[in-house]
């Protein structure tokens, strides 16, 4: 599998570390809603199809990438720098 790192170009899977589901929303730090925290920490949807997830280019520039990957075919649909895409989301 190849992931096209926006900084480094297309690189082999072995250079990356999977860093988890990118669809989760962390509750507000002051929140005491245990079910929301529980959902954030433990609940995952086992998606068959396109899945947004974080990959770190740990053997390269070390940036976290927000990747949309099909769990059925391993096709990478999009790659963005996580920091930028998370900031864009926060701005919305």
């Amino acid at each position: 599998m190849l992931i096209a790192c926006p900084y480094c170009g297309p690189r082999d899977l072995s250079e990356f570390t999977y860093q988890g589901d990118a669809n989760r929303t962390r509750p507000h730090p002051m929140s005491n809603d245990q079910s929301a925290w529980n959902a954030y920490v433990y609940d995952r949807v086992n998606t068959a199809g396109d899945h947004r997830e974080f990959w770190q280019h740990s053997g390269g520039c070390r940036a976290h990438l927000a990747v949309v990957r099909s769990t059925l075919t391993h096709e990478i649909k999009s790659v963005a720098i996580a920091r930028e895409s998370m900031n864009r989301e926060a701005a919305k």
Partner: peptide, 14 residues
């Protein structure tokens, strides 16, 4: 190191 980078990139990018 990876833990810190994750939170800076993915949780608190600001």
């Amino acid at each position: 190191m990876q833990h810190l980078e994750y939170y800076l990139d993915c949780v608190w990018p600001d």
